[in-house]
Design a binder for these strands. Structure first.
Lengths: 227, 227
DNA sequence: GCAAAAGTGTTGAACGTACACCCATGG
DNA sequence: CCATGGGTGTACGTTCAACACTTTTGC
């Protein structure tokens, strides 16, 4: 038995959130788990993950960021027989409304990462471990790839983008230096010429994602200031 | 069916080499392939990979570098039924004698990477693709982790270490600056106090691997000079 | 005008690169 | 003493971090 599990992250109301589903069957009935599904005979694991992602978020997976995290195969990770090997994936999405009444009746919801840690028994299966690894990967990838734009809507401000880094890394960044790095890096963001009216202060220029995949020079994460 | 395949790299006679086995069965009879083996019911994929690695190299896998590369699951990647999903691993070893007469009678050999590209039909299955991804991973990891010492014997010179970077990256590095970076990075190399007599010139100081896993500051790869 | 948020300029420290130079050994 | 490879010093350019400063809006 081989599955693809998904760590789908987004930023909602200034907090880094994870998409979880409440389990409707044993084992772990009623507990939160990562969404996932079985590999079908006619598809690759990438296709399985993309299919699950679009089912859960309601948008075409081709527009979202999706990447393998790793394989989790401990013989006792799933009490079922035969045991289930899973390939965990990291997905990044902008703030989306969940297709509540769609597909199956499972209750999917966005859970702030901080609340995941306060769950009495944690996530189902070994999903706490998977989440930890996926978060570490996301934090590392933010440094060298332009994936931060995947958290943002099609048009966004530099402050929106900075908030992504700050929420995922859990640090505060210098506004001025961030602005320069981002706008000077080639192919990271492209000015649209439009502006967004703000409740207070000068209107911010709007950008859209560029076509570069890698971020040069990299955006280095500050030293172990906050964990 | 779930397997672990291994991309085992080393440096022999100044060339980056890959451990390949000649297939003794169909499909791909007589072609070169990556070593690998099936996941057993009582082990994790990490244990499968470590077991295969020690069988092929003859040394305890705990002393070598071993890391997941990714899952390869295209339905047509293996003509057998049911299809085989594999989790590719990258392993790094010092120059080792192969246990030629050991274990099973498969003919394992070190093949220079340059020669892999000249094989008429390439490697068996999708192993060309796996090798490409594993090499890219190794090249990237050299920048931020201290894995280069895994290519070296227990005691090595700075020049040995520099050759690792040069052979894996395919570039030439400045001798002086490399020496400084490596010796000043904390926990990368530790001087043993001994020296190695050379055929020519001043004897080089011998070092052993330090205990740091990450390399700070990183050893940045030169711009796209050579591919 | 004032508060607030966006955006620009400046400066000193840290780092990378290039290359000149000295050191230790065998022949 | 010379060739050869190991190792150090130095000078310059680039990048980074900190923070002062200017711009543009709503009220």
């Amino acid at each position: 038995m081989f599955t693809a599990d998904l760590v789908i992250l987004t930023i909602r109301d200034g907090a880094l959130c994870l998409l979880v589903v409440e389990r409707g069957n044993e084992p772990f009935l009623g507990r939160f788990a990562l969404p996932g599904g079985f590999l079908r005979g006619d598809e690759s694991i990438e296709q399985t993950a993309a299919r699950e992602l679009s089912e859960e978020t309601g948008v075409d997976a081709a527009t979202l960021y999706l990447q393998q995290v790793g394989v989790y195969s401990r013989p006792d990770r799933d009490p079922r027989r035969p045991r289930v090997v899973t390939c965990a994936h990291l997905a990044i999405a902008p703030d989306l409304p969940l297709p509540s009444a769609g597909s199956d009746a499972r209750t999917a919801r966005w859970l702030p990462i901080a609340e995941v840690r306060t769950l009495a028994d944690g996530l189902a299966f070994d999903h706490d471990e998977i989440l930890r690894d996926a978060l570490e990967l996301a934090r590392a990838e933010l440094q060298f790839r332009t994936i931060a734009t995947a958290f943002c809507p099609p048009e966004f401000t530099i402050s929106d983008l900075r908030e992504v880094y700050e929420r995922v890394w859990g640090v505060e960044l210098d506004r001025s230096n961030f602005h320069r790095k981002v706008t000077e890096a080639e192919g990271f963001v492209i000015a649209t010429g439009r502006r967004r009216a703000t409740v207070n202060g000068r209107p911010a220029a709007l950008f859209r994602a560029g076509d570069a995949a890698t971020l040069t020079p990299p955006m280095m994460r500050p030293r172990p200031a906050a964990s």
